[in-house]
Design a binder for these strands. Structure first.
Length: 646
RNA sequence: GCCGUUGUAGCUCAGGGGUAGAGCACUUCCUUGGUAAGGAAGAGGCCAAGGGUUCAAAUCCCUUCAAUGGCUCCA
């Protein structure tokens, strides 16, 4: 019997007989540890804890706490869901059942049977019942012929379709209880690990994600190894709902929608507009410092502009339809992006290599006819304002300019305390080039420029194929909302194509005409989406420099109304956004209301303050800053804001 | 656009085949107060819109619109 060396993460090496499983290794350490082992990572690959290890290996024992452990746990839960579905609804056909970020789903074809959310409880109970049978997840290698035979007999055409794409010799089945599924694994040792189950939602989902295929019923669920973890999860969900920008936006009177105005067309209320204005000023200042020049362009553009840019061919049918004029054949589109307009600004005068880079910036409002089912609060709308800019640069300047834009985006994120973002390099889908315009050479140049710049700035990035814009690759900054959905905020794009389409030129030092490269960029992405994500990040407690109302003056009684008004005037002179609560209410009530409106600073003024010409300052949340002169308050506020912005 | 869910007062929600309910917000009056809810009265609704079933519909059915959870899409 040969012996193998198992290296554990702490560097210790243990000797075992070949064929020992990760679970047995765990048992050799302690029974308690073994009870918590969900799966194992052998030489970097996640496998069943029960899989025999045949050679020397690095071994990581995976528990629930590990990301890969959770994924395995939820994947096995999907199998349990499928088993319960087959038991409750005989004849259902199964699609796929993978883990997701939180939980898992299974796509199911119910045929003629009905399944509604009222049956979640029944399904959960069945799953729990099956989990308690303590069935082992058993792996079995099968030949392609066996696999086809099994699912042909079962009549599951979806699985058969999946098997078609698999190679003989790499097909495995997993079984637990009365259920067998085509599956690569790995899985948890037995069903009894699953102690708490929640079926969370029901959705339609196209088979293999293709709109042309049949729509299956997707059942989402989440499971835990302890009941208490499920309870905690439900609390977190509740908390996330409290942070929802649609809820807070309503409560803080930031924005609204009107059926009459039209779906997906946000209306900014005074406080929301104030907030947005602060963001615009903040970025404008940073952009001027970085050498950008503001430009302004109209909200519509002639159809020919978009024929030139290529947008008409790509989106013409799915956009807001053109505005016609009394003149025969004349058509205008609501502008869906600002780039073509900016290209024409570039062309307004001849450019020398000495003029470049040219950086045109515009807070440009654009209109896109998003599909009805896609609209979502402020994050996906039909009319929105991009903090757009286009840089026209010489080829030798691409990387330097790209890096400077990365710096600007990072500055914006840092100022707003966005730490939890992903930098995503979105490249072309190499298997579906027809979706894109432009030559392979230009795409190669643009993709290389992005990858190199991101590396140079030391960004840790993920690469996504097929996520590029149709005219060029992108570096996208993705941020999660309260419930974990990912949204693209900042974006930087390198584009060799539009300069060609618009025949943009500059005269080089050689006195010949050259073609500039375009960089599209938007640090916020759009003000609407940015504000939405910002709200969810800070739960409506905006930084002092940004919040629509910074200070509220709370006179203790009507007797101090005049004093309060004097204070208000002083604050306004110092550009501090302040208001007075002059209702005939007690101080406790006024404080409570100010807290609910998330006002950062409350000034309580009564007999004492009036006599001493001071204010008593309470910060939101209850901290007492004591009493001070209004001048000291102003400098305190200014210092606070300065700290926040640096 | 597709599958599911929802739509009652400004907001949060209860109710439910027989003339619409609560709390908060709002208005007026009383109260003039010291760090998270003072008291009273009042006003506010075609129960999303349209059609059906019924003696009778906010309630049951259908259609549309909108919101919402997903899918697909996202210049």
């Amino acid at each position: 019997m040969s012996e193998i060396k198992i290296t554990l993460p702490d560097g210790s090496v243990k000797h075992f007989e070949a064929g020992t499983s990760a679970l047995q290794v765990a048992q050799s350490i302690s029974e308690g540890l073994a009870r918590n082992i969900i799966a194992a990572k052998v030489n970097g690959k996640v496998v069943d804890a029960t899989l025999p290890i045949l050679t020397d290996a690095d071994l990581v024992l995976l528990k629930w706490e590990d990301q890969d452990g959770k994924r395995t746990f939820w994947h096995s839960s999907a199998h349990l869901l499928a088993e319960a579905l087959e038991a409750l609804y005989p004849g259902v056909k199964l699609g796929i059942g993978p883990p997701v970020e939180t939980g898992f789903y299974y796509d199911v074809d119910f045929g003629d049977q009905k399944f509604t959310s009222e049956e979640f409880g029944k399904l959960e109970n069945k799953m729990l019942e099956l989990a308690r049978t303590n069935s082992a997840y058993v792996r079995k290698e099968v030949s392609k012929a066996e696999a086809i035979q099994y699912f042909t007999e079962k009549g599951d055409e979806y699985k058969l379709e999946l098997i078609e794409d698999l190679n003989d010799g790499e097909i495995t089945f997993y079984s637990q209880g009365n259920f067998t599924d085509l599956c690569r694994g790995p899985h948890i040792p037995t069903t009894s690990f699953i102690k708490a189950i929640k079926i969370t939602s029901l959705a339609g989902a196209y088979w293999r994600g293709n709109e042309k295929n049949k729509q299956l019923t997707r059942i989402y669920g989440v499971t835990f190894p302890k009941k208490s973890e499920l309870d905690e999860y439900m609390v977190i969900l509740e908390e996330a709902k409290r942070r929802d920008h649609r809820k807070i936006g309503k409560e803080l009177e930031l924005f609204t929608f009107s059926e009459k105005v039209g779906m997906g067309l946000p209306l900014w209320l005074p406080k929301g507009a104030r907030l947005r204005e602060s963001l615009v000023q903040f970025l404008q200042k940073a952009q001027v410092a970085a050498g950008y020049q503001p430009v302004i362009t109209p909200h519509i553009g002639n159809k020919n502009l978009y024929i030139t840019s290529g947008h008409y061919e790509k989106y013409g049918e799915d956009a807001f339809q053109p505005i016609k004029t009394p003149r025969e054949g004349e058509e205008f589109f609501l502008k869906p992006m600002n780039c073509p307009h900016h290209c024409e600004i570039y062309k307004a005068s001849p450019k020398s290599y000495k003029d470049l880079p040219v950086r045109y910036a515009e807070f440009g409002t654009v209109y896109r006819y998003e599909q009805a089912g896609e609209l979502h609060g402020l994050t996906r709308v039909r009319g929105f304002t991009q903090d757009d800019a286009h840089l026209f640069v010489r080829p030798d300047q691409v990387k330097e300019e790209f890096c400077k834009v990365i710096d600007l985006v990072l500055y914006v994120f840092k100022s707003l305390d966005f730490k939890d973002y992903t930098a995503q390099i979105s490249l072309r889908d190499p298997n579906n080039k027809t979706k894109y315009i432009g030559s392979d050479e230009n795409w190669a140049l643009a993709e290389a420029a992005i990858i190199e710049s991101a590396a140079e700035k030391g960004l840790s990035t993920v690469i996504e194929l097929g996520e590029a814009a149709f005219y060029g690759p992108k570096l996208d900054f993705m941020v999660k909302d309260a419930i974990g959905r990912k949204w693209q905020l900042g974006t930087i794009q390198v584009d060799y194509n539009l300069p060609e389409r618009f025949e943009l030129e500059y005269t080089g030092s050689d006195n010949l005409k050259h073609r500039p490269v375009m960089i599209h960029r938007a640090p916020f992405g759009s003000l609407e989406r940015f504000v939405a994500v910002l709200i969810e990040h800070c739960a409506g407690n905006f930084p002092l420099w940004l919040t629509p109302e910074q200070v509220i003056i709370l006179p203790i009684s009507e007797k101090y109304q005049e004093y309060a008004e004097n204070l208000l005037n002083v604050l306004k002179k110092h550009d501090i956004r302040a208001l007075i609560d002059d209702r005939s209410e007690k101080t406790g009530k006024k404080i409570r209301d100010a807290e609910l409106k998330k006002l950062p600073l409350m000034l309580i003024v009564g007999e004492k303050e009036q006599a001493e010409n001071t204010v008593s300052v309470r910060k939101q949340g209850g901290e007492d800053l004591g009493s001070m002169s209004v001048e000291s308050l102003v400098s305190w506020i200014n210092k606070e804001i300065e700290t926040q912005l640096n």
